[in-house]
Design a protein around this nucleic acid. Structure first.
Length: 672
DNA sequence: TTTAGGG
DNA sequence: CCCTAAA
């Protein structure tokens, strides 16, 4: 173990129970020994070894070390459990009650409690604990004890609850009321960008565990933290019996700054040193589609699991993951359901709008990153005294409606820096990330009363963005509209931010959202817009998104046919692709995708295949005929070499055993 | 869903 | 990148 984790292992972990669901501890108990976190193992630890089969020359070492990773995580898990169980301190209760008291809104206790209420407040720490929780889950309080112990200062204030048990019980997929917990740091951008690292610095366990993603057990959450640092690195969820030992707290150093959203969207790909990853929102999936999605897309939910299968032979490890898969799936279901519910329930919900901008993060335990999903968006508030009246509007009049940006937050990002990085570099990195997002192109959408105003040709007046007098009317219209069906959307966010739904005062509040390039699935068949909130980070490579996005709405042209934004491959991506093809051949694009572009969600295996096709073509033409970012000649040479090699070796034939020789083992020009 | 190719 | 036949 000691030789596994070395001091220079840069990746660290962070903990921030900011989106912790109400029954986090339950998971520790009910799923004893289940996933505690994931782990990053840096490539240098896994020198590639010559392998007879050659295909995964690093396989053995990877697996070996992976098992070590299991050990490490198991130890952590064990400690977690141990602490959870042994601690019966009453101060937990105190904390809980404190939080309850901070729940200004105060939740109704009866079953009639609107789920939206519960969930609404669930996204914010100050209303984390709902009465129902303790009522319906008498054991919760005890279960919960393990949590606050860890870091009362940083944890409690960030605890949030997704849903109350009664909500959970109504979900399709989990009657247990298991909920999800997410651990992660956060970055908020208000007037300032504040970084917050949870936990304590400079503490390491005896085993030098400085790599631990203290994230949770829910599939997507886990995925969020399962980074592939390179094709040799592994981050795995862990299963192991508890091993008593080091205080968990010691390991909860916070070095990595996590910025996340609800999806497992990483930007970047294997072999690429992606510094940060913007997220896309969690796709919304209809209840009825969840099952299907879960079964058919488990790979996306637990990509690492897949990786293991692919690159680590078939041993016990695999079965472990297969077993795990179900759990991921299950919990993912649950979470999706919860989100779904949130989406529904937020509709028409009146909630507070105030979102502190500059002070949201800094010192307040009531505000700040616990806002979770609330952060992604721009609040536009009508500030003008002008009071255009729709009904009283006369020809020739052109009253103005003025808006100001109340707050502006950038969605969560995921930034990873070595512990040795300077604070300055941290700031710079964050700045780069934010700049990339903003500079990369954003779209602005308008959400009024929780409803997206899609028709750009409508006037503000027509859209209802004018005067308070129309408020009621608008609400009614909103209520009258049928429940919005939920469809799968690659880009839509999973929740409707209560902050953007409405405002109780007389002002018409318009929420303006930025979003990435529209995806075709933003609308349901009846044209109902599902996206009500979408601050979609735009990847740095997506600088064309603004230009590509049509300024005028295509009235009828279904956006389903909208062409995807063009995203030229970078040299790094090409390199990763070439490397993967050298290894896997030209007939296994899915494997290539999984192995080298797993987290580059915008690269499908078809994309990769197409890119390879063009690469082969490019390599075959004279340099002056090439366009776009020049691909280094050596890469093109490798392309040709791999192409010819795999053409000869018939990689695409299924009869071929998995031991098909990778090119690199035969090509002297390719040396690690 | 994935592969393979044409457009 | 898109589209789609075929597997």
């Amino acid at each position: 173990m000691r030789n596994l984790v070395k001091g220079d292992l840069a990746t660290s972990y962070f903990l921030n129970w900011r989106s912790c669901s109400g029954m986090l501890p339950r998971i520790w108990y009910r799923k004893r020994g289940w996933i505690i976190g994931s782990m990053v193992v840096d490539p240098p630890l896994f020198p590639k070894l010559p392998d007879q089969s050659g295909r995964y020359s690093h396989k053995n070492s990877v697996e070996e070390n992976k098992l070590c990773a299991f050990e490490l995580l198991a130890a952590v898990a064990g400690k977690l459990l141990q602490e959870s169980e042994s601690s019966v301190s009453s101060n937990v209760e105190t904390h809980a009650s404190t939080l309850k008291n901070e729940n200004v809104k105060g939740q109704p206790k009866d079953e009639q409690t609107p789920k939206s209420e519960s969930i609404d407040h669930g996204s914010c720490a100050e209303s984390s604990f709902m009465p129902e929780t303790s009522v319906q889950e008498p054991d919760l309080s005890s279960e919960f004890k393990g949590l606050p112990q860890i870091d009362t200062d940083s944890l409690l204030e960030n605890i949030s609850v997704f849903a109350s048990p009664d909500v959970l019980k109504k979900l399709d997929f989990d009657a247990d009321g298991n909920t999800n917990c997410e651990v992660g740091g956060s970055v908020s951008v208000g007037n300032n960008i504040n970084l917050r690292a949870e936990g304590q610095q400079g503490m390491h366990s005896e085993d030098n565990i400085n790599t631990l993603n203290g994230k949770d057990h829910v599939g997507e959450r886990v995925n969020n933290n399962m980074l592939i640092k390179s094709d040799n690195s592994v981050q795995l969820p862990l299963y192991r019996d508890p091993i008593p030992y080091t205080p968990l707290q010691k390991q909860w150093n916070a070095v990595k700054l996590g910025i996340r959203d609800d999806d497992d969207n990483y930007f970047g790909c294997n072999k690429l040193s992606t510094k940060f990853r913007p997220f896309r929102p969690q796709p919304r999936t209809g209840h009825r589609r969840i099952r299907k999605m879960l079964t058919s897309k488990y790979r996306k939910m637990a990509p690492k699991l897949r990786s293991c299968e692919l690159y680590n032979s078939r041993d016990g490890v695999k079965s472990l993951y297969q077993h795990r898969k179900r759990i991921y799936t299950h919990e993912r279901c649950l979470q999706s359901s919860i989100k779904k519910r949130k989406l529904f329930d937020h509709r028409g919900t009146v909630s507070h709008v105030q979102e502190a901008s500059s002070n949201s993060m800094s010192n307040s335990s009531e505000k700040g990153m616990c806002k979770d999903k609330c952060n992604s968006g721009i609040m536009l508030e009508r500030v003008s005294g002008a009071s255009p009246t729709v009904k009283g509007h006369k020809k020739g009049e052109d009253p103005h409606v003025k808006f100001s940006i109340k707050s502006f937050k950038v969605p969560e990002l995921y930034i990873e820096l070595p512990e040795t990085a300077s604070v300055g570099s941290l700031k710079r990195t964050v700045m780069e990330a934010v700049t990339a997002i903003l500079g990369g192109g954003v779209r602005v959408g308008v959400v009024l009363q929780g409803k997206k105003v899609r028709d750009d040709s409508r006037t503000l007046q027509q859209a209802g963005i004018s005067q308070s007098g129309d408020h009621d009317t608008l609400d009614q219209e909103l209520l009258r509209s049928p429940a919005t069906p939920i469809v799968d959307s690659g880009i839509s966010n999973a929740s409707v931010d209560p902050h953007f739904v409405s405002k109780v005062d007389d002002d018409v509040v318009t929420s303006v959202f930025m979003s990435g390039p529209q995806t075709p699935t933003n609308e349901t068949g009846n044209g109902t817009v599902l996206d009500s909130k979408a601050l979609v980070p735009v990847s740095p490579m997506n600088s064309e998104s603004l230009a590509v996005t049509p300024a005028n709405p295509k009235p009828k042209k279904n956006e389903l046919s909208q062409r995807r934004t063009r995203r030229p491959f970078s040299v790094d991506e090409v390199e990763a692709l070439v490397e993967a093809v050298e290894r896997l051949g030209t007939g296994r694009w899915r494997d290539v995708k999984m192995g080298a572009f797993e987290h580059a969600d915008h690269r499908t295996y078809v994309d990769l295949k197409d890119k390879w096709k063009t690469l082969v073509h490019t390599a075959g033409i004279s340099p002056h005929q090439r366009r776009g970012e020049p691909v280094p000649q050596d890469l093109l040479d490798r392309v040709l070499a791999a192409h010819s090699y795999w053409s000869l070796h018939q990689s695409k034939q299924q009869g071929k055993q998995p031991g098909a020789e990778p090119l690199r083992s035969l090509d002297p020009t390719i040396t690690p």
